[in-house]
């Protein structure tokens, strides 16, 4: 078996496993989706992104950030799985309940090995997190990009919040993603990283004879899956339970893609660029 075939086999196994987990939740909670559905074959960890080419009425669920290179099929539903990740749900809650308030500045960073997420994949996710957590669209941005492997973005949102996004694919192959999200308010700061640390902590560190193993289990119902897989399943389950308007999701997807394009354009022109249709 070639490396490509091996990767495809792994991807298929992964897809089947994730679909089975979604189906399990649907059965457990007696949810009957309105149509047939499938999970797009490409997902986190499966490398480069392409949109599914659905040929029938089957609803295809696909992480939005892994669907950048081709137009979305009408029956595709771009998911925003990070919004179903526990840490981001809690950060959103902290903002919505005004535990920290008012937000003034945000500092986001996400570094990958480029295999698990490309620079575009990262920017899509971080732009969405910025707008979702801050409750406002990005109004303008300025970006500098180096070798298509690192992008430094400073954006201003329509509600006046200023946000920085550090995106890079400079981690060595196989390295776990490193990210950080900090929300700075006049009263309080919220973050998904511990004060005085640089990287994410794990729940378990197992120092055994053979090696050091780390475990971070975040979902009892989906035990054994990592945070990204669990959030993808949660987000798919939610979409099947309470189907959103497909055209709305496509519009949001286009908006995030436009922000990525604006990033490249800002770097190319060396200018701050405004987002069409958004003003303070």
């Amino acid at each position: 078996m070639s490396i490509t075939e091996e990767k495809q086999a792994l991807a298929t196994a992964s897809k089947n496993g994730l679909e089975a987990a979604i189906a399990g939740l649907l059965t457990k909670y007696s949810v009957k989706p309105k149509s047939e559905w499938q999970l797009a074959p490409n997902g986190p960890g499966d490398g480069p992104t392409n949109c599914p080419d659905a040929s029938d009425d089957t609803l295809t669920l696909v992480p939005g950030n892994f669907c950048l290179d081709a137009p979305l099929d009408a029956q595709s539903l771009p998911l925003l799985p990070w919004r179903s990740e526990r840490r981001f749900i809690e950060l959103k809650q902290i903002v919505d309940t005004r535990t920290v308030e008012p937000l003034l500045m945000c500092r986001f960073a996400c570094l990958t090995d480029g295999e698990s997420m490309s620079l575009g994949n990262i920017l899509y996710r971080e732009f969405d997190l910025a707008e979702w957590l801050c409750g406002s669209p990005i109004e303008r941005l300025y970006a500098t990009v180096a070798d298509e492997r690192s992008a430094n973005v400073v954006a201003r949102l329509a509600n006046g919040i200023v946000c920085s996004i550090e995106a890079a694919t400079t981690l060595p192959q196989g390295t776990t993603m490193q990210d950080r999200h900090e929300l700075i308010a006049r009263r309080g700061i919220a973050s998904d990283r511990v004060v005085d640390t640089q990287i994410a902590q794990d729940s378990i560190y197992a120092f055994t004879d053979s090696k050091v193993s780390r475990y971070t289990d975040v979902d009892g119902e989906l035990f054994g899956l990592d945070a990204q897989e669990a959030s993808l399943i949660r987000s798919a389950f939610e979409a099947l339970s309470q189907p959103p308007d497909l055209s709305d999701t496509h519009q949001s997807h286009q908006h995030l893609q436009d922000l990525i394009s604006l990033t490249w354009e800002s770097d190319r022109l060396g200018e701050r660029l405004s987002v069409e249709g958004v003003s303070a």
Partner: peptide, 28 residues
């Protein structure tokens, strides 16, 4: 600049800066 954390200051207290070096290094 972001709105000030300390509203009674008459100077800025929150700021973000990005750009590029002559050798192409991007910074934030």
């Amino acid at each position: 600049v972001a709105p000030n954390m300390r509203e009674d200051l008459e100077v800025e207290d929150l700021m973000l800066v990005n750009g590029k070096m002559a050798d192409g290094t991007s910074f934030l």
